[in-house]
Amino acid sequence: MRVSVPTIPDAVLRNAQQQKVTVTHAFAVDRIARFLARGNAAVITGAGVSVDSGIRAYRGHKGSYLNPNYKPIFYHELMEPNARGAGFRQRYWLRSYLGYPPVRDAQPNPTHFALAALQHSSVTPHIITQNVDGLHHKAISDIWDAQRRKEGILELHGTLHRVKCSHGHEMERQKFQDMLGEANPQWKAFMEELERTNSRPRTNPDGDVVLPAGTRYDQFIVPECPSCLLENRRNSMIKPEVIFFGESIPSEVRDRSFDIVDQHDRLFVIGTTLATFSAFRLVKHAIQQHKPVLVLNVGPTRARELAVVETIEIPAGAVLRDVVKQVLGSAAEKNRTIAQMLESGVVRPPPDDYDDPIPRPTGL
């Protein structure tokens, strides 16, 4: 399956505004806690979960794109083996070079830690995330090793923290980030000045930034894959391990996402509009398997197309800590690890602005 540009039907957006129901904190906590109390729930998360960590969501509370000039770069454009593809890669990697550090340095927020507490307690054994920021891993990394995190967290759309060339050679993103800086000393100096003055340009949800009109992308150097060079091959066709629009989700990832839904008794969906079909089809699959589905999100979601899906509209960060306390009872206080998780997390949402005049290339 190839990932297409996500959309929410206009009828859903209109109806969501007309049918919006305000719920109290107490009602939301009690309803979610009762939904999770039996355990064995799978979780799907989206961009809304990471907003409190300073990473922008794609859509605002009304369901429309926060960037009105949204213009994604497609997989085939980024990986074209010609001058046109090289131009797309120069544009992508310059913006991503400047935008990656805020994503790399972002810290989990209370929602990430609350979900980590539920996962560590085996209430929600598996998380399927559409996010590419790695914050679910960070939230539980002190108590779960890399192998256990890999088993418990499925990154449906990949990760920004690794890159791969067109011949399959992988490397850590920070290594490639350093290579980009060495190849483009003027941009390295520019980024260091931004960091020194704490004046980063606007960062978008996938780790790139807004740059002024007239920026010379054609002068940015994209380094060649060092592993390819060792094989006497020159190759600068490198991309992050993120699923771009028009790119297929690997079959093993797709199959595992369905297996996770099949293995659990219910599905809890948090912080996503479900506009991307790769996540929406998992909700539909759960319904076909007669599994209860509960959606926690602020704003419209495609789940409203499905009459059997229950939706609660309230910020996850406002309720999930209390949900964990109600589900786990006294263990939430007596278990030192869980108690510490429920006291952890940053709350640093990005500025509430919508002033990106420049269409931007992006992956998911």
Rank of each mutant, 00 (worst) to 15 (best):
residue 221 I to N: 10
residue 33 A to K: 07
residue 118 L to Y: 03
residue 205 P to C: 04
residue 187 W to R: 08
residue 10 D to F: 08
residue 341 M to G: 06
residue 292 P to F: 03
residue 162 R to P: 08
residue 150 K to H: 13
residue 305 E to C: 08
residue 334 K to F: 11
residue 316 A to G: 13
residue 272 T to A: 11
residue 349 P to V: 05
residue 304 R to T: 09
residue 167 H to W: 12
residue 201 P to D: 01
residue 108 P to C: 10
residue 120 H to Y: 07
residue 319 V to M: 10
residue 71 K to E: 10
residue 61 H to T: 00
residue 113 F to L: 13
residue 59 R to L: 08
residue 251 S to D: 12
residue 209 V to M: 05
residue 205 P to R: 07
residue 29 V to G: 10
residue 329 G to W: 05
residue 137 H to F: 14
residue 73 I to C: 09
residue 289 Q to I: 03
residue 289 Q to R: 10
residue 215 T to C: 07
residue 103 V to A: 14
residue 131 N to T: 02
residue 359 P to Q: 01
residue 212 P to Q: 08
residue 310 E to V: 07
residue 340 Q to F: 13
residue 28 A to V: 02
residue 263 Q to C: 03
residue 246 G to E: 08
residue 29 V to P: 10
residue 228 C to F: 01
residue 94 L to I: 03
residue 56 R to M: 13
residue 194 L to C: 14
residue 304 R to G: 09
residue 313 E to N: 15
residue 103 V to L: 15
residue 243 I to P: 02
residue 3 V to L: 13
residue 209 V to N: 06
residue 230 L to P: 07
residue 22 T to E: 14
residue 25 H to S: 04
residue 231 E to Y: 11
residue 347 V to N: 14
residue 52 D to F: 01
residue 191 M to W: 11
residue 155 E to T: 00
residue 51 V to T: 15
residue 146 A to Q: 03
residue 65 Y to C: 08
residue 154 L to S: 10
residue 108 P to D: 01
residue 70 Y to M: 15
residue 137 H to I: 03
residue 172 E to A: 06
residue 80 E to I: 11
residue 360 R to W: 07
residue 25 H to M: 09
residue 172 E to T: 00
residue 287 I to E: 09
residue 49 V to N: 01
residue 224 E to Q: 15
residue 224 E to T: 13
residue 34 R to N: 13
residue 345 G to M: 07
residue 69 N to M: 09
residue 138 K to A: 12
residue 356 D to Y: 06
residue 336 R to A: 15
residue 15 N to H: 12
residue 203 T to N: 02
residue 289 Q to K: 07
residue 179 M to K: 04
residue 256 R to V: 05
residue 131 N to F: 02
residue 342 L to F: 04
residue 198 N to T: 02
residue 240 P to K: 05
residue 203 T to Q: 12
residue 24 T to E: 04
residue 182 E to I: 01
residue 299 G to L: 07
residue 109 N to I: 05
residue 181 G to Y: 09
residue 149 R to E: 15
residue 361 P to C: 02
residue 127 I to Q: 13
